[in-house]
Amino acid sequence: MKIMNKRTGLIALFVLAILFPLIFQNDYYTHMLTLSFIWAIAVYGINLLAGYTGYLSLAHAGFFAIGAYSLGLLTVKAEMNFWPALVLACLITSVVGLLIGVIALRTKEHFFAIYTLCVGYIIYLVIDKWDGLTGGVRGLIGINAPSNIGPITFETAESQYYLVLTFLVVVIFVIYRIVHSLTGRTFLAIRNSEELAQTIGISTMKNKLTAFVLSTFFAGLAGALYASFVRFIGPDIGSTAIMFDLLMYLLVGGIGTLSGPLVGTLMLVILSQNLQFLQEYRMLIFGPILTLIIIFYPRGISGSFFDWKRKRRNQTGNVLKPIKVEEG
């Protein structure tokens, strides 16, 4: 019964997502949602690493930018077709992620955060200064929309919305599968205690690297989609400001939960669009929110919601089934 409810809820949500552009017929909303979905993909990547494996990377805006610039350069300068370029962009990001991960993951906790913050900054500076390749501060313009697949074109706002939605659903599905598998349990064991994980025979380095490369892959995918959606990219997409935005989406939504990244991203993107007059100063509100959330609701909206539901279920004595590792 319980599972049926959950499933119907998910289906309803999915149907709503599909019908959304048809109901509203508003390019602005469609555009905004598409953008949120792209950010959400990147946030899911960060969540896999920070939420499930316990490593807070501050370099992921950099990986997002690598994905975006790879796609941009491959399609604009190398005049490659969108689809192979998308695959290559994700691969390039993952390979860079692998190289950085091998070194970065030898450090822990604070060192890891500082190290990745600096790596992110190096990526940003290289993009900014390497004028000949990236166009420097002028950015890269004229990136094409995704090319046709047979009769399907991606020129309209709706078609791009569906394309990005498809990617998002696949990403969530893949992460769901990973989190609910032995691999996911392994990640959680590492997050809980690396020492303990090692004594039960887990190769922590190998698993952390898997999580890291995967998370850079998702960041790269999001970046590549962003480039072809917005059609213009500048070095700023790799800046710490973007990194902190993504982090905020994750924390408000709920770090280490499956629905958190989507909930947080949608909420904050929509909220900041509606507080347009605040655009420049939105951090006056969001900054304190981030700090308060981590103090009082460290599991974010989704996590706190499920905690609350669990508590209520326990109180009413209606204990059907104990909650799984990390519901949400």
Partner: peptide
């Protein structure tokens, strides 16, 4: 002080929140 017993991740994120606030404040 409220985060002394919390996991180390929380300090960092709280600090980032403060950073974002102060910068927006200065700009404002």
């Amino acid at each position: 002080r409220l985060l002394r017993e919390a996991p180390p991740l929380h300090d960092k994120i709280a600090a980032i929140g403060i950073l974002l606030f102060l910068e927006a404040f200065a700009q404002f």
